[in-house]
Design a protein around this nucleic acid. Structure first.
Length: 409
DNA sequence: CTATGCATCTTGCCCACATCCCCTG
DNA sequence: GACAGGGGATGTGGGCAAGATGCAT
């Protein structure tokens, strides 16, 4: 599996399509996925250059190698080699039929690979599919609208110690263009429209986002239906309006959660009032892997030209599953988000402190950063272990915290 | 502009013990 | 070489304290 394109059997495979479970060269990827609207929604990413069989999730800057989760773990877990210090960049996935230029923007290193540039990339660059006609997502003026999914990018913080690693190398061209059209929400400063690491903002330093820094952005404009499910009840004009620009999914990652405190200022008096409950989408909370891959701590934002709102996300999880799905229970419970202008019920000075503490603790609970649970069985035990002031206690000792208060023994 | 104090946020440590993993026979 | 057993190392989560940071005065 892998290495050779499973479609043409000739070129070196470059990307992995999860939906098709197939390794494809770039030209075949575009051929296959330009067939229809459904295939365009297939999410693809690079192939792990080590095992050549799994979708890569990170790229090691030092080794200039794209790695899947397993190979990344095995290759960078050993502290003796010093490889743990390697800077790694989260790899983007994309959907639709991005052009060669767009792909190179997503994966700037792609064209550095001579084996890619000499074969697939050149072929792809000469391909005519959709190139000379407006894409499905383009209006006749060539202006992208929300129907055109050119790329879905997910960037997670990989090297926590190096803030520079947060640089989103893979900002897409259209994404940039869209951002250029964005304006700060009414009544906000540019600082308020927070997207990434603490202290940085989308427009703060570079109004054209050349150095866009964000911890996580997930764009899937075309896929908003599958993201939100049937219960999406926003006005249709929200999506039909040309001004609907892009959809952001913000992950709460290290150094950013506190940053969300900035959003409120941004959203004051604006569409933030449309905040609704957020329902996690993951349905298998029991699976550790799925838990880790779940969109965690997601706060969904719709950025329009002059508004900012949090979307509604539908899922199968009950409220009690919020931890596994990583969504703040405050949102699940319909509690106003922390950045909402303080209402009468929270304006009391005596309760603001406790509310803030609770808020922080909830954040801390749901914060995952890049932590991976290596041993699910150990986690399972720790989850049910009784504690005293957070510390494990010997079996049979008195406890003040029991994760399973209903157990009979 | 700087110093101070307060509030908020972040980080690291602790605990017990099942499981992992390496070594020896 | 394969297997079994022993024993040390590891990892797991909630709470707390200390330190860091941000902001107002």
């Amino acid at each position: 599996m892998g290495y050779i394109c499973e479609y043409c059997g000739e070129q070196r495979s470059i990307v992995y399509c999860r939906s098709d479970a197939a390794c494809l060269c770039l030209s075949c990827d575009r051929n296959v996925h330009s067939a229809n609207a459904l295939s365009q929604r297939h999410s693809r990413t690079l192939i792990c250059e080590r095992c050549n069989s799994q979708p890569a999730v990170v790229r090691c800057i030092e080794e200039r190698t794209s790695l899947c989760q397993n190979c990344d773990w095995s290759g960078h877990a050993s502290s003796s080699s010093g490889s743990t210090m390697h800077k790694r960049q989260a790899l983007s996935s994309y959907t639709g039929c991005p052009s060669a230029a767009e792909l190179s923007n997503i994966w700037s290193f792609l064209l550095d690979d001579p084996s890619v540039g000499d074969t697939c990339e050149q072929r792809m660059g000469s391909m005519s599919i959709n190139d000379n006609r407006p894409r499905d997502g383009q209006d006749p003026q060539g202006k992208d609208n929300s129907q055109n999914v050119f790329a879905a990018v997910e960037v997670s913080e990989m090297n926590i110690s190096d803030k520079s690693n947060l640089l989103m190398e893979s900002s897409m061209p259209t994404f940039d263009n869209k951002l250029h059209n964005l304006e700060p929400p009414i009544g906000s400063s540019s600082k308020g429209f927070y997207m990434g690491a603490k202290g940085s903002s989308l427009f703060e330093e570079d109004p054209f986002c050349d150095n866009l820094i964000m911890d996580s952005v997930d764009m899937g404009i075309q896929n908003y239906e599958e993201l939100f499910g049937d219960s999406l009840n926003y006005p249709d004009e929200l999506f039909e309006n040309e001004n609907f620009d892009c959809f952001f999914e913000m992950k709460d990652v290290k150094g950013t959660d506190s940053s969300c405190q900035d959003i409120p200022n941004a959203a004051e008096g604006s569409a933030i009032a449309r905040v609704n409950t957020v329902h996690p989408t993951c349905s298998d909370a029991a699976s550790a892997d799925s838990v880790m891959s779940c969109k965690t701590d997601s706060i969904l934002y719709f950025a329009r030209q002059s508004s900012l709102s949090v979307s509604k996300k539908t899922g199968e999880c009950s409220t009690g599953d919020y931890q596994d799905c990583g969504v703040s229970p405050m949102l699940l419970m319909g509690e106003p988000p922390p950045w909402c202008p303080p209402g009468p019920e929270i304006s009391s000075p005596s309760t603001s402190r406790s509310n803030a503490v609770l808020r922080y603790k909830e954040k801390k609970k749901t914060r995952k950063f890049d932590k991976r649970v290596r041993y699910v069985s150990r986690k399972a035990r720790a989850d049910v272990r009784r504690r005293v002031k957070g510390r494990f206690i010997k079996a049979g000792d008195a406890y003040d915290y029991d994760p399973l208060p209903t157990r009979s023994y």
